[in-house]
Structure formats: C-alpha cells, structure tokens
C-alpha cells in the first residue's frame, strides 16, 4: 500500500516534469525538467527491483546524456538564456499525433493481457545480466559497440566541419 502511494506521488512528479520539459520557455529549464524525468524513471526501476538499471539510468542519462544536451544547447547562442515560445507552427500537428499515439497505447493496454507473475529477483541478477551480454545477447552487445563507434566518428566529423 505504501509503495502504491509512493509510486503515485513519483509518477505525478515525473509526468509533471515531462510536461515541464515540453512547455518550459527556457531551454536550460527544459533540460533540467528532463533530468527530473530521468530521475523519476530511475525511481521506477528501483520499484521494479531492477537496481542495476536504476543506477545505469542515473549514470548514463543524468550524468552523460543530460550534460551532452546542455552542452549542445550552449553551442547555439541564439536560444541560450533567451525566452522562446513553447509553441511553433508544428504545434497543432504534433498535438494530434501525440493524441493518436496515446489513444493507441490506451487501446493496446486494454486489449493485451499482461502475464503478471512476479518472480522473486535472484540475488545474482547482475551476474545474470553480465552472462547474458556474452551468451544470449552477444550480437546486440557487439553491435552496441559498433553503434557507439559510429556515433563517435560521426560526432568528430561534424565537429571538425564546424571548426573549419
């Protein structure tokens, strides 16, 4: 019961933070709201007893991705620190598209019967994740490294172009 109440509170905070990300007039504030959303998601991972995912969420999303986003904002002087309108000419189309997606998701949740069968989390869950990386999921694991390599090369090319 206490957990449900906790979940509700954090879910509302996370959603509020997500809305803040979209409607904040200042891009830096939007980035901070996004960090709040990430933190909320990390909390849900803890509730789901996925502790490794929770800490990875904080390390990768708050520590790395959010910083990257803020640095990217700083690259574009024109928007930094200046109040910009939250809506542009795409607002109407995006609103319709999001409404459709939400409707589709709600419809999906009503027709799909989830097989909720909570198993106790094994003590060596992290070791099992590690084993999974090098056995069952070895192809995705290696592809991730290639994906990261491609991202790195792409970023260097882009930055060099900017520099010249």
């Amino acid at each position: 019961m206490a957990l449900q109440i906790l979940f509700l509170i954090v879910a509302i905070l996370t959603l509020g933070s997500a809305i803040g990300t979209v409607i904040a007039r200042n891009l830096f504030h939007a980035a901070l709201f996004l960090i709040g959303t990430f933190a909320g998601v990390a909390f849900f991972y803890v509730l789901l007893q996925a502790e490794f995912l929770a800490v990875s969420q904080v390390v990768v999303y708050i520590g790395a991705i959010a910083t990257l986003i803020i640095f990217a904002i700083m690259l574009t002087r024109s928007v930094m620190g200046r109040e910009a309108g939250a809506l542009n000419q795409w607002a109407g189309i995006v609103a319709v598209a999001s409404a459709l997606i939400i409707a589709a998701l709600i419809w999906l949740f009503t027709i799909v019967k989830f097989d909720v069968n909570p198993q106790p989390v094994p003590d060596d869950a992290i070791a099992q994740i590690g084993k999974g990386f090098v056995s069952t999921y070895v192809i995705p694991f290696e592809v991730v490294s290639i994906l990261l390599l491609v991202a790195l090369i792409g970023a260097i090319m882009l930055a060099r172009e900017r520099h010249q």
Binding site: V60, G63, F71, M74, R77, A151, L152, A159
Partner: peptide
C-alpha cells in the same frame, strides 16, 4: 556561446560511459 570542443568531449564521454 561555447565551443564545439565541449560538445565533442561530452560525446566521447557518453560513449565510454556506456
């Protein structure tokens, strides 16, 4: 405005962090 160097370092960091 900041230099692209910061962005580049952040991106390299993201990759090695992951």
């Amino acid at each position: 405005q900041f230099r692209a160097q910061y962005y580049l370092i952040a991106l390299i960091f993201v990759i090695f962090d992951i």
